[in-house]
Design a protein around this nucleic acid. Structure first.
Length: 307
RNA sequence: GGGGAGAUACCAAAGUGGCCAACUGGGGCAGACUGUAAAUCUGCUGUCGUAUGACUUCGGAGGUUCGAAUCCUCCUCUCCCCA
């Protein structure tokens, strides 16, 4: 029985070659790419986020992409906004009879849209915050526990998150209607990965390459533009360690080693998320990164039932 | 050539007769995670499919002792200082 997939998802850990597979598929399917990357949304953050914009031209044809370069660096984007933006882009692509290819490595963003997390806009409640901020942590735990149903299951390991969690529950309790008009998605999910040893090698050589291409200058430019080092550190990985190098906290070698390790660990966490998705019922069809492109695309077409 | 310091698990580093299969940090592995998610947090990490269990470890070889990573002897190697 043929399944009518209405979206193709390409996921996988960093440095696995997802983008080229996604753009190739978009080229074949007359489609457009929707990025699922929590850091590529920022303008001016290219090398550090591994945007690979040159991959968006296949056989001389530019492939339209979405949710890349949509906000200024310095801004703090989040899942809620991502989901909203995704819905809009998805509907738009469908209305133009193009095929959407979701591609990225931000597990939570992917799951948020494929699973349709119920996220609604919860405004900041300054009054509530000022009250909660005076209370001890254990009292906050009790307050959060007092809500019958929890909509927000995030970590509450810090006071800040705890207060935000209560703020969200508080809002839900007063605004019970939370059904948003969510598009019906029937995704085919394909993962691209290499064996761990190869993955590590790829991460390291890609890191060296991007440093050669001027990744440090990119970060320096952001600092010059007035983005605080705290914000850059918040962005993590490349932006975090390179900023610490620029401010003199880390030598070049220390920066390189720590960053390399951090990216390896990040790739591992990405895989942990994907495995969890599989346990939770998402079928991910894994492709060996070493397979040639035509083999990958043939396999995906086969899975899509277009062969 | 003379003097001194040291060799501990993947790495660094505690431990200096029993409470040591060995503190701790890093790394590695596994996991949690719906509003920071490139974040944050948790567990495991000598071997034995489980173990209040067994077995093998603290440079090597001997020895002392009821008992050694810890004490003694010899050997090998590393580092530092003076020549």
């Amino acid at each position: 029985m043929a399944v009518n997939y209405n979206i193709l998802t390409i996921l996988g850990p960093t440095a696995g070659g997802k983008t080229s597979v996604a753009t190739r598929m978009a080229y074949i399917l007359n489609g457009e790419v929707i990025s699922a990357d929590s850091r590529q949304v920022y303008r001016g953050m290219d090398l550090g986020t591994g945007k690979d914009l040159e991959d968006y031209v296949v056989e001389g044809t530019p492939i339209p992409y979405h949710l890349i370069d949509i906000v200024d660096s310095g801004y703090k984007y989040n899942v809620y906004e991502y989901q909203q933006d995704f819905i809009q882009v998805f509907n738009d692509i469908q209305s133009r009879n193009k095929f959407p290819v979701l591609c990225g490595g931000s597990g939570m963003y992917i799951e948020a849209v494929l699973k349709g997390y119920k996220l609604i806009h919860v405004p900041v409640n300054e009054q509530l915050r000022s009250v909660l901020e005076k209370k001890p942590y254990n009292e906050l735990v009790e307050i959060l526990a007092s809500f019958k149903t929890l909509h927000n299951k995030t970590d509450i390991d810090t006071r800040k998150r705890m207060i935000r969690a209560i703020e969200i529950e508080e809002y839900y309790s007063e605004n019970p209607q939370l059904d948003v008009d969510y598009p019906k998605l029937t995704p085919l999910i394909v993962g691209v990965k290499f064996d761990r040893q190869s993955q590590r090698k790829r991460i390291t050589s890609r890191l060296k390459q991007r440093l050669d291409e001027g990744m440090i200058d990119e970060v320096r430019k952001l600092l010059d533009r007035g983005i605080s080092s705290e914000t850059l550190v918040y962005y993590g990985l490349e932006y975090k360690f390179i900023t610490q190098h620029i401010t003199g906290e880390l030598s070049y070698n220390e920066m390189f080693k720590k960053l390399e390790t951090a990216i390896h660990q990040f790739a591992k966490r990405q895989m942990t998320w994907f495995r969890r998705m599989e346990r939770n019922g998402f079928k991910i069809h894994w492709l060996d990164g070493y397979a040639p492109m035509n083999e990958k695309t043939a396999r995906i077409l086969e899975l899509l039932g277009k062969k």
